[in-house]
Simulated assay, not measured.
Amino acid sequence: MLPKDTLFALSLFPYLGFLWFLTRSGKTPHLALVGFYALLVFVAVTIPAGIYAKIHYGEQLANIDWLHGAAESFLTVSNILVALGFRQAIIERKKTSS
């Protein structure tokens, strides 16, 4: 069985493929697409935060509340952007269909 760090790194490739297809399709609401790309910011922040937690506290990131919360805030922003993007698309679709 692969270590969790290896699985985490390998999971990036399918996600990049997902982003490529979403972008190429041209059908994804812009704000939602920005949210999906913002998830990469979450990943980019989480990795150094995890290293910092291990080096300075000798703990996993999940055990350092202030650091974990700060990193997770990027995930929250990403999710909000995706939800607002699709909400906006639904509202626009309803306006054009009525």
Rank of each mutant, 00 (worst) to 15 (best):
R93V: 05
M1Q: 14
L22D: 04
F74Q: 02
L2D: 06
L33N: 15
S25G: 07
Y15A: 15
S97F: 01
V34A: 12
N79R: 02
V43P: 00
P3Y: 01
G35W: 15
I47K: 12
I80M: 15
R24A: 07
T46I: 00
G85W: 14
Y57F: 14
A83C: 10
A53F: 04
G69I: 00
F8N: 13
F13I: 15
F42G: 00
F21M: 12
T46L: 03
S73M: 08
S11V: 07
F36W: 05
T76S: 00
L2E: 03
G26C: 06
T6A: 15
V45Y: 02
L2S: 07
D65F: 01
R87G: 10
T23Y: 14
I64E: 05
A89D: 11
G17H: 10
T28E: 01
F42M: 04
G17M: 09
A89I: 03
R93L: 07
Y57R: 07
E59T: 08
A70W: 02
F86W: 15
F74A: 04
G85H: 13
L22Q: 13
D65N: 06
H68W: 05
R87C: 07
G50Y: 07
A83T: 11
P48H: 02
L39A: 10
F18K: 08
F8K: 06
S78T: 05
L31M: 11
M1V: 14
F86D: 05
A38M: 06
V34R: 11
A89P: 02
F74Y: 13
D5S: 14
A44M: 05
L12Y: 08
G17I: 07
I51M: 06
A32C: 05
P3T: 01
L81W: 03
L7S: 13
L39T: 15
N79V: 03
T28Y: 02
L16F: 13
L19I: 09
Y15R: 15
T6W: 14
T28V: 08
I64N: 03
I90Q: 08
P3G: 00
G50M: 05
F21E: 14
F42C: 03
L10P: 10
G26Q: 06
G85F: 15
W66V: 13
F8T: 05
G26I: 06
R87V: 04
K95E: 12
T46H: 01
L75T: 01
L31K: 10
G58A: 03
G17F: 13
A32M: 09
A49S: 13
V41D: 00
R93G: 05
E92H: 12
G69P: 00
G17A: 09
V82W: 12
G26P: 02
L61E: 09
K4A: 13
I64G: 08
L10F: 15
I64F: 04
V45H: 01
L2P: 07
A83H: 04
F18V: 11
G50Q: 04
L75H: 01
T23K: 13
F86T: 08
F86L: 15
Y52H: 14
